[in-house]
Design a protein around this nucleic acid. Structure first.
Lengths: 199, 199
DNA sequence: CGGTCATTAGAACGATCGTTATAGTGCGAG
DNA sequence: CTCGCACTATAACGATCGTTCTAATGACCG
């Protein structure tokens, strides 16, 4: 049995994620996915009998988990949340520059395409974002940000990241990502200072 | 000559904008646009000889100008920038709720689709965003925010709007838009307070 | 060796894509 | 009235879409 079928499956998902990144959902054909993932149409439908919809759902879940782990590991690798967040935005800006502004968030691209026209996929993305927000809020709370404020700052964090990706990719200039990063860091610092001062 | 041809042209652009909003660029077929705009394929190619690409460019420019005027009119209708910004985010949240989270920004959706795969359209969107950022920065500077800070806050403003649209549409809950709104307002208030205090 | 089954290869389906071509409409100018 | 031109209608093109189907491959088990 080995690991062959698992590798093919993961290769297909990885190829799908890469294509979603730079073309979105609708513009990415199954033939292109098969070619990029070194698979055939038959193989593709063997692993994803539900066709494009099932493949997209699997890809979004996979990418969502991957990005969450990446972000959380960067933050946890820092002495505190504030410097962790700073590192996050710096890493995102570096990644954009290093990949010619291609490597960003495939989930956001697909999200805007399907949010109002493909309910099953919208729900998948909703779960992914919810998981991100929960993880970020927990991490902020662990560093002393009050519960309610932590949830709001988590939303601001994710929205800033996605907004930064959008503006940076369109402008082919990562300075937008750095700008929103500074704003998020300042907001978190404020919340922490207020928490230490107040009740 | 009358206004017939102008009306048809504008009807096509409006229909395109609406379809881009909920489906994006690739998923929106020319046939669907023609039907929604009460036009035919021939009529469509008469007004936009460049085909889908030219129609998309015209639509993005048109929508971009429209949103810029809308946002600036809301801000200018308020006594100061801070309450103007508050009104902006409140209006965006209300619009999302009123339209079942469909009516958002067609430009962001198309932007993520084409930023790395369609250079001409990317440049059009780049111009649109640049115009937004310039207008917002000028408005912030007019209310006393130092030049450099105004440009950065303009980026934060637009990124927050787009990030708020994304999260709110996916979650079908406009509270994310309200959260990012509060963060932007706080950041601007801070900048104004600092400007009044410092040099 | 023979048989089973997961996996692959690739052809073929109808539908729809963006685009083009052609014929036809109707209105304003001379 | 008639010519010209802006505009419309519709059919058709080749290409590609997502999907289905049938064969064939190949490794493991009795």
């Amino acid at each position: 049995m080995g690991t062959t079928e698992v590798d093919t499956r993961e290769r297909i998902v990885a190829a799908t994620s890469a294509l979603f990144m730079q073309q979105g959902y609708s513009a990415t054909g199954l033939k292109a996915i098969a070619k990029a993932g070194r698979a055939t149409t038959g193989s593709l439908y063997h692993f994803f009998p539900g066709g494009k919809a099932e493949l997209a759902a699997a890809t979004l879940r996979h990418s969502g988990r991957g990005y969450e782990e990446l972000v959380m590991s960067v933050i946890d690798g820092a002495p505190d949340v504030v410097t962790g967040l700073r590192a996050c935005f710096a890493a995102a800006a570096d990644l954009l520059r290093a990949t010619d502004y291609v490597d960003a968030c495939p989930i956001a691209t697909v999200a805007l395409e399907v949010a109002s026209s493909d309910e099953p996929l919208r729900q998948v993305i909703d779960e992914v974002f919810r998981s991100w927000l929960d993880a970020a809020a927990r991490r902020l709370a662990a560093d002393g940000v009050p519960e309610e404020r932590a949830q709001e700052l988590a939303i601001v964090f994710v929205a800033a990241l996605e907004g930064g990706f959008l503006l940076s990719r369109v402008a082919r200039d990562a300075s937008a990502m750095e700008s929103v990063g500074r704003a998020v860091v300042a907001a978190v610092e404020d919340a922490l200072a207020e928490a230490r001062r107040g009740s």
